Amino acid sequence: MDSLVVLVLCLSCLLLLSLWRQSSGRGKLPPGPTPLPVIGNILQIGIKDISKSLTNLSKVYGPVFTLYFGLKPIVVLHGYEAVKEALIDLGEEFSGRGIFPLAERANRGFGIVFSNGKKWKEIRRFSLMTLRNFGMGKRSIEDRVQEEARCLVEELRKTKASPCDPTFILGCAPCNVICSIIFHKRFDYKDQQFLNLMEKLNENIKILSSPWIQICNNFSPIIDYFPGTHNKLLKNVAFMKSYILEKVKEHQESMDMNNPQDFIDCFLMKMEKEKHNQPSEFTIESLENTAVDLFGAGTETTSTTLRYALLLLLKHPEVTAKVQEEIERVIGRNRSPCMQDRSHMPYTDAVVHEVQRYIDLLPTSLPHAVTCDIKFRNYLIPKGTTILISLTSVLHDNKEFPNPEMFDPHHFLDEGGNFKKSKYFMPFSAGKRICVGEALAGMELFLFLTSILQNFNLKSLVDPKNLDTTPVVNGFASVPPFYQLCFIPV
């Protein structure tokens, strides 16, 4: 009986604490739906499609509103004006990374994606500088992407125009580009180590996009005490870190300090320079996690976009025909596509942009946080508050993009057929937390897609009208449904 009384008292205290925290903070924060004790607004949000729920709530509470995930307040920004004001106009104040408990377990605050403060700034600055020195957006990395595009075309030829699921092959190409940047090595598509790495990356994007992960991140005790797919994700990350550590040891034994070959060499050189400046942010643990982040951000996002792009091109054969006509006119058949071609191919450029806009790969991006107490639109948001960005509300804005739910390359073309930029184009987020590999991803999408369409016609196994382009999961990332196609050599 005594234990029951204690339990009831504990629960009562928890409920009172929950109510007090919510009521004391709500006077400062933007308005929002009334949260339930302990669980907050979790029942009012469709976990399978958070973005749709945010759109519905914005119609009631406006472009800036507050939700509670458990006891934790989260300020939501919906629509271009609110997102721009926060991420661009007040970029420094909104540059923090929001709480992501599962990532905390995986990387302990290291790396480039989930770190904060001085650690994040130094690692991000170093990573950007190193990638630029190796030619991100310049010639040397373009050579690597072109080489991988040629290998991709050869792998597709091996399908002999038979029906195939493109998931694996389209994942190999961007993964190999990242391998060449980090390890100075590309792998054969049949290499077992490479296959294991690909498998872990593919599993992780599916797990991260599941409703279960949303629950884990908002009720963090689940991570330590409950079984579930989150444990598989943590094991996959541990596998990748151990693999990278092996490569780091190989580099330490063979590195030429006067001739760095890749990202690992550059990081080890930085560690050597910083060894007298303790404590340094440049450690082996930081290198492991930064490399894992580059793999995660640079492989599955690009391969998922490529997979979605081919599905949309199957669905819209008239678009595919126009792209192939432009390829034939500008590039021809006797040389590989290059980035200089893009400025002469406005329709193809528009298609690449429209694919990214339409699929809305990361509907709410990753959570941000404010780095200080900030007054925002007459609300006071306390330091450390998590900020949720609705990228969907920007990419699918119906004023900027008429009929935003329709796939239409003319969203990025003017009346004369010239490519038209849009400030609403934010597939990689915006501001200080914009994806480090934005330029690389854009290069890969253009070169891989043009190389495929230069060499193959795409054949659907069903009537294009019957192809479903609805994402199968739409949590962290929008993942396309399973499909097969035939690559018919031109």
Rank of each mutant, 00 (worst) to 15 (best):
W212P: 02
E155M: 05
C10P: 02
R97H: 08
L440H: 00
E246M: 09
P409D: 00
I359Q: 05
W20A: 04
K270V: 06
E274C: 11
N277V: 12
S115I: 04
R186M: 02
C216L: 15
T66L: 03
I264T: 09
M406A: 12
S254V: 14
S286M: 12
M406S: 13
D256V: 14
S422N: 10
I141L: 11
K399P: 06
K72P: 00
M257E: 14
V473R: 15
G62S: 02
D463H: 14
N217C: 12
E154Y: 04
F456V: 00
F226E: 01
E325V: 14
V177E: 00
L234M: 15
F94G: 05
I331R: 01
L7S: 12
Q252T: 11
G79V: 00
G332V: 04
S254D: 11
S220H: 07
N116D: 08
I374D: 00
T55S: 12
F114D: 12
I327E: 00
N258C: 11
P489L: 00
E92R: 05
I181H: 02
L362D: 02
T229K: 14
P260L: 06
Q356A: 07
L67S: 03
Q278G: 10
K84E: 09
F428Q: 05
L9W: 09
N236D: 05
N231V: 06
V370M: 07
I205C: 15
G117K: 06
F295S: 01
S53V: 10
D360S: 11
P471S: 08
G135W: 12
S23I: 08
N398Y: 12
K420S: 06
V462M: 10
V323A: 09
E199Y: 07
N202H: 13
M198E: 02
S115G: 13
V462E: 14
G98Q: 10
F126I: 09
F446Y: 06
L36I: 15
F110V: 13
F446L: 00
L388M: 15
E142V: 04
R139D: 06
Q192I: 12
K241W: 03
L156H: 00
E288P: 04
I88S: 08
A321V: 12
R124A: 04
L361R: 11
N398L: 08
R21H: 12
H78R: 06
P163G: 05
L29I: 04
P279R: 15
E203A: 08
E104Q: 10
H276W: 10
L311Y: 03
K235R: 14
L310N: 01
M339R: 05
A439L: 06
N202K: 07
S58E: 08
Q192V: 12
L294S: 01
L314Q: 02
S3K: 02
L195K: 15
D397M: 05
R342M: 14
N218I: 14
M198W: 06
S58A: 13
M426K: 05
T302I: 15
S365E: 06
N474S: 14
S12G: 07
P33L: 01
D397Y: 04
K84G: 06
I284V: 13
T304L: 15
P211W: 07
L128V: 12
K158I: 04
Y483G: 01
Y483T: 03
S162M: 13
L15G: 06
K158C: 08
R150M: 13
C266G: 08
P211F: 08
P260W: 03
E354H: 01
